[in-house]
Design a protein around this nucleic acid. Structure first.
Lengths: 197, 197
DNA sequence: CAAGCGATGTGGACAGTGTCAACATGGGTC
DNA sequence: GACCCATGTTGACACTGTCCACATCGCTTG
């Protein structure tokens, strides 16, 4: 049946079409008009919902951060009580997210608006979950006390984000075996360090 | 004076114009025709040197990896003999490279060709320099022996690459003070680990 | 319950893009 | 000194993002 003149929920449809196109080909190179076509709508309809292509991308990016935080929270909830396992669970969630949805992950990382403070990153996000978890670990006395939770979180973030990025960028193969092996390697590095005892 | 019909060294000029445009604005969004204009040449001349835009980008990317390896080598040469200082020097070089030339760094990381093995990354590059340096440290007995030099290198790479990426993406501010502070933080994390002793 | 207004979608236009094909030019090679 | 091939030019095409004026509808208000 023919679509009504008013689509009903075009905004959502466009965003979904965008992720679908992301997944189909391998990059951000989709086009606004393609999206419109996929949604069965003229090339100009998207402009009623987004000021331009950049704003649409920003919306996708923002949704990505929310999804990441949700994944982190879920993984954490299933991780039990051991502080170290909880930290590990967060790292795994991050890495899994990146590998499962490389296009979205790449988009999220690609902040075209320079480095102005980004409210998406600032609050209620995966980073603050990580910080809280490390604060727990710190209070539980299993990690060193001379670094703040914020510093610990930053180091952990850098570590797991680095591996994720390198894998997503294809610099390191991302097969299952390697993901498991390197995950463990990072855990060891992070907690024990590499210096000889 | 008017350029001769044959430019002489258009390929080089185009690549230079590309980095210049990279630096000027903040992104990869330059256009082939712009490059041609900047080089004082018609919009189709670039096609005599590159099959298309993708190939030009690939050339830039490749040059970036060479420059990075050179920077790493230089930093290493000035680092003295202490194995730990040498590792740290490599990390600093990487981070500095990323922050000084964020556009190039971003481009290098953005591998649009999926994850096929990339000869640029495979040999004579910064990664193998890092591996060699960690192998030295391992032989010198200052780092743990139960991990291979390759594993150690991978962990170090992930750590410093993570911080670099996050800073370049604007997720973490990249002022001088922070760069120094976080560099030290990563060094501590990497060598000592965060677990309580 | 009708009128009308604002939100949503349409159609056309414009400058600019990447790329292709045919043609022009001239420097290095026999 | 003539020729050939690499290099640069001109013209064209389909396509893009975005602007504008217009069409259509559903919700609100009287």
């Amino acid at each position: 049946m023919p679509r009504a003149y008013h689509h009903g929920n075009l905004r959502r449809t466009l965003l979904d079409a965008a992720v679908a196109l992301f997944a189909e080909r391998g990059a951000f190179d989709f086009t606004l008009r393609e999206l419109a076509r996929a949604a069965g709508v003229t090339h100009n309809a998207p402009y009623r919902h987004f000021a331009g292509k950049a704003e649409l991308l920003e919306a996708l990016r923002s949704e990505g951060f929310v999804a990441l935080a949700a994944a982190a929270q879920a993984s954490l909830s299933a991780a039990g009580d051991d502080p170290r396992k909880r930290v590990r669970a967060l790292g795994d969630a991050y890495l899994r997210f990146a590998i499962d949805e490389p296009h979205r992950f790449r988009l999220m990382l690609h902040n075209p608006l320079g480095n102005a403070d980004d409210p998406v990153v600032g609050q209620g996000n995966a980073l603050s979950i990580l910080k809280d978890t490390l604060e727990e670990a710190r209070r539980a006395g299993v990690v060193r006390q001379d670094l703040s939770a914020r510093e610990l979180a930053l180091a952990a973030w850098a570590l797991v984000h680095g591996l994720s990025s390198l894998m997503v960028a294809g610099q390191i193969p991302a097969d299952d075996a390697r993901v498991r092996r390197y995950g463990k390697l990072l855990e060891t590095t992070f907690f024990e360090g590499i210096a000889r005892r």
